Simulated assay, not measured.
Amino acid sequence: MRKIIIIGGGIGGTATALALNQAGFEPVVYERTQVLREVGAGIALWANATHILKKLGLLETAIQVGCLTTNYQFNSQRGKELVNIDLDGFELPVVAIHRAELHQLLWRNVPGEKFHLGETFERFEHQHDRVHAYFVSGLEVEGDGLIGADGLRSRVRATLLGDTPPTYRNFKTWRGLTDYVPSNYRPGYIQEFLGGGKGFGFMMLGKGKMYWYAAATAPEAQPDAVFGRKQELETMYQDWFSAIPELIAATDEANILTTDLYDRPPTQPWSKGNITLLGDAAHPMLPTMGQGACTALEDAYVVAKCLEENSDPIAAFQRYEDLRFPRTKAIVEQSLRSRKMGELKNPFAVSLRNTSMKIMGSAISSSFKSLHAYRA
């Protein structure tokens, strides 16, 4: 039984531990936080991701704690429909779920002894055909391979490839969670609204929760307004579609999180020898296509399958990278192109974009569906 060290216990790392455990490996996860948890955000698991959950035996439970999603609707800021994409055409459902629910679903199906919390990765060394990982606490462990699933600012990536910073993409985002459901919400819909230099979207999660997200152009590390995030957002979106100011008003200030948006230009390699990267550590992307967690689930399943098929972790990790790079590169680049459409501020340019989206609705829908028709 080959031992695989996983650095990072988020969705990608935990999904990898589960896939490897089911395949008969000995995965061991080292996570720097003291408690395994995800906070503050909902995600849409498109059919390419629910396919992975089905393979892992978790889809039915995910449906129970999430919310089935049938349509993705793009609108102008005042609510005029631009494109309405039917999501019912796949053999698998699209599920909107809170990140914490998905995270718990994954880690509860991995034996508890596979997780070591409160361990901050420091460095690694190769000794013969083994990899040794060292932690700030003084802990040293060895394994047949190591997977860095430690996020956007991955320490494993920095050690492996050099400590180059991610690229800020001139947007910040806010995320909120509330029990309030607007009267004009369309059940089963993800509704997204596009304005000048900013946007807003919302969708129903499981357990009666409504998740919303906002994004706007901003300088990097811009501080909150002196009067707080909630009031700032109420001012920014006061003349938008009526459900939007209603949702902001119904959300407690403490339940509004904000994050700057980064990615990295797709580059290879992200594997060296018996060490590889996964999820945001390998290919961080903007959230505009909703594929961050979905591609991390794909990575987890594919890397486990490659290790099953190759007795040598070096060959397995190279095969995994060869399989994953073209797809993740395309999604990173498509996500960036979508962001550029959201940067438009000139009223004429915004109007032209909206008109173009209406005219190209069928092509947008086809492109969208081809992205989610992928099966790892």
Rank of each mutant, 00 (worst) to 15 (best):
N48M: 07
A19W: 12
V83L: 05
A216K: 10
Q104G: 09
L307D: 10
I4W: 13
Q22F: 04
K114A: 13
C294T: 14
H372P: 00
T16H: 09
D224M: 08
G342T: 01
R155G: 13
I7E: 12
A19S: 15
A62M: 04
K114T: 13
M1A: 14
L160P: 08
R108M: 06
V136H: 14
L59T: 05
G112A: 13
C306I: 08
L105Y: 01
A316W: 08
I256H: 02
N21H: 15
G273K: 11
A149P: 03
L278G: 09
P111C: 07
K3G: 06
H98V: 01
R32T: 10
E232K: 09
P166W: 02
G9E: 00
G199T: 09
Q22W: 04
P93G: 06
Q73A: 15
M360N: 10
D280H: 01
F241C: 11
M360W: 02
H98F: 08
Q318R: 15
Q64K: 15
L278S: 08
K55G: 01
G138W: 05
L53M: 14
A23C: 10
M203N: 10
Q104K: 13
V28W: 08
E119C: 09
D144N: 15
N346I: 03
G361N: 14
F348S: 13
L297F: 00
M357K: 07
Y262N: 02
R157I: 03
G40Y: 00
V332F: 08
Q77W: 14
I63G: 10
N346K: 03
S351I: 02
M236W: 05
K172A: 04
L20Y: 12
G195M: 04
I43G: 04
Q191Y: 05
I244A: 08
Y320W: 02
G290M: 02
Q318F: 06
G228V: 09
S370W: 01
V35I: 01
P187G: 11
G42D: 06
H126G: 05
M357H: 08
C306H: 09
W270G: 05
N75D: 10
L233T: 07
F124L: 11
V181Q: 15
E308Y: 06
E38G: 02
V83Q: 02
I97K: 07
Y134W: 06
V350K: 01
Q73C: 15
V181Y: 04
E113T: 01
V131W: 12
Y168D: 00
A133W: 04
T167V: 14
R2L: 14
T258W: 02
S370Y: 02
E232P: 02
V181A: 12
P313N: 15
E122A: 15
Y211Q: 07
F115H: 01
R169K: 15
